[in-house]
C-alpha cells in the first residue's frame, strides 16, 4: 500500500522551474530517502507534500488526501520536523509538548499519554520542567521528532533532521527512525549524509527539480553505476589524482579522505597499468583494490563532481 503517491508534481516560480514533473510512490511504513543537492528542489517538494504550497501542476496523494485539492486534510495526517530546531527554547520541555499536543487537538488523558511517550523516546523522563534551550543537541533533536509525531500521524516528514548533530546522536536518532517505521509510520527523510541514506528502504535522487534516480540502495549501486570502482591509497594524493584524471580509461575520479576513488571503463582490468603510471610519476602506491561502490560514488557519477551533496 502506498502512503504517498506523487504524480507529475511541478512547481514554477515565475519562469524558474523548481520541481519539474516528478512522480514516485512511497510505501506505507518504509523509510524513504529524498536526496538532492542544495537548491535541487527538495524543500519545495516537501512543502507541497505537506500541503503548505500549492503545486503549479500535477498532484500528490498524501495519506489518502490530495495536496492540490484538499491541503488542510493532508495536514491532519502528517508530522513535520524542519531542519531548523523548531521547539521554543524559552519554554520547558513539558510546555512545548503541551503546545504541540494542543495544536493538534490533544487534551487530557490522551495528551498525557503521548507526552509520556515523547519524554521516553527523548530520554527526558522526569525532566519535563527543564528549559528546552538548556538541552544538548542530540536530545533536542529527539524531542523535536517526538513533538512532530505527538499526534501519531501516519506519515512524518523529516527535513535534514540530523544536520549539526554529533555522529553518536545521529546513530541513535536513526534507531528512533527505525522504531517509528517498524511501528507502521511512513518516514520521509531528506539528508546530506549519504551513509544515512544507506539506512533507507528506498531512495530517490533529484537534480535541478528532476528525478534522476530511484530504487533501494543496492539497486542504485548496480543499476546506475556500470563502471568498476577502485580505491587507491598513495603517498601523494593530489598528484596521483591529477595524473589519473588524464588517463582515457578513467571515467571519474574523486577523493575520499586519504584515498582516491577512480571509476574505470567496464572492460578495464589491468591494475598493473595504474601502478606503472604512478611509478613513472614518482608516486608510491600503497594499496589498490576494487571496491563495492558506495552511494556517494553513485551520486558523484550521476550528478558530476561539481555538485557533491
Amino acid at each position: 500500500m502506498n502512503s504517498i503517491e506523487v504524480k507529475n508534481l511541478t512547481k514554477k516560480f515565475g519562469d524558474f522551474v523548481s520541481v519539474d514533473n516528478i512522480s514516485f510512490n512511497v510505501k506505507q511504513a518504509e523509510i524513504f530517502g529524498f536526496l538532492g543537492a542544495n537548491g535541487a528542489g527538495k524543500s519545495t517538494t516537501i512543502r507541497m507534500l505537506c500541503g503548505i504550497l500549492e503545486p503549479t501542476f500535477g498532484d500528490a496523494v498524501v495519506g489518502g488526501c490530495s495536496v492540490a485539492k484538499n491541503p488542510d486534510s493532508v495536514k491532519q495526517n502528517i508530522g513535520y520536523m524542519s531542519q531548523r530546531f523548531s521547539l521554543y527554547n524559552d519554554l520547558a520541555v513539558g510546555e512545548n509538548l503541551d503546545f504541540f499536543g494542543g495544536v493538534y487537538g490533544l487534551s487530557n488523558q490522551k495528551l498525557n499519554e503521548r507526552k509520556k511517550w515523547v519524554l521516553k523516546i527523548a530520554n527526558l523522563e522526569g525532566k519535563e520542567n527543564l528549559l528546552t534551550g538548556s538541552l544538548p543537541g542530540g536530545i533536542k533533536q529527539r524531542l523535536a521528532l517526538g513533538a512532530a509525531v505527538i499526534h501519531q500521524p501516519d506519515i512524518v516528514f523529516l527535513d535534514e533532521p540530523t544536520s549539526g548533530v554529533d555522529p553518536i546522536s545521529r546513530r541513535n536518532f536513526w534507531e528512533l527512525i527505525n522504531e517509528l517505521s517498524s511501528e507502521g509510520t511512513t518516514v520521509f527523510v531528506t539528508t546530506h549524509y549519504l551513509e544515512e541514506a544507506e539506512f533507507c528502504n528506498n531512495i530517490i535522487l533529484i537534480d535541478a527539480g528532476r528525478l534522476i534516480a530511484e530504487g533501494n540502495p543496492k539497486q542504485l549501486k548496480t543499476d546506475y553505476l556500470k563502471n568498476s570502482i577502485y580505491e587507491i591509497e598513495s603517498d601523494r594524493v593530489i598528484e596521483a589524482l591529477e595524473l589519473l584524471e588524464k588517463q582515457n580509461f578513467v571515467v571519474e575520479t574523486s577523493i575520499f579522505g586519504n584515498n582516491i576513488h577512480i571509476s574505470v571503463e567496464e572492460k578495464f582490468n589491468d591494475l598493473s597499468r595504474i601502478n606503472k603510471l604512478c611509478e613513472e610519476g614518482g608516486i608510491t602506491i600503497k594499496r589498490i583494490n576494487k571496491i563495492v561502490p558506495t552511494l556517494e560514488d553513485v551520486f558523484i557519477h550521476l550528478l558530476g563532481n561539481e555538485k557533491i551533496l
Binding site: I52, D72, Q76, M81, R84, S86, Y88, F100, V103, Y104
Partner: peptide, 13 residues
C-alpha cells in the same frame, strides 16, 4: 526568525 512558524504552518492551525 526562530523558524517555529514552519512547524505551525504544517499543523492544521
Amino acid at each position: 526568525e526562530r523558524g517555529t512558524i514552519e512547524q505551525i504552518n504544517v499543523s492544521s492551525i
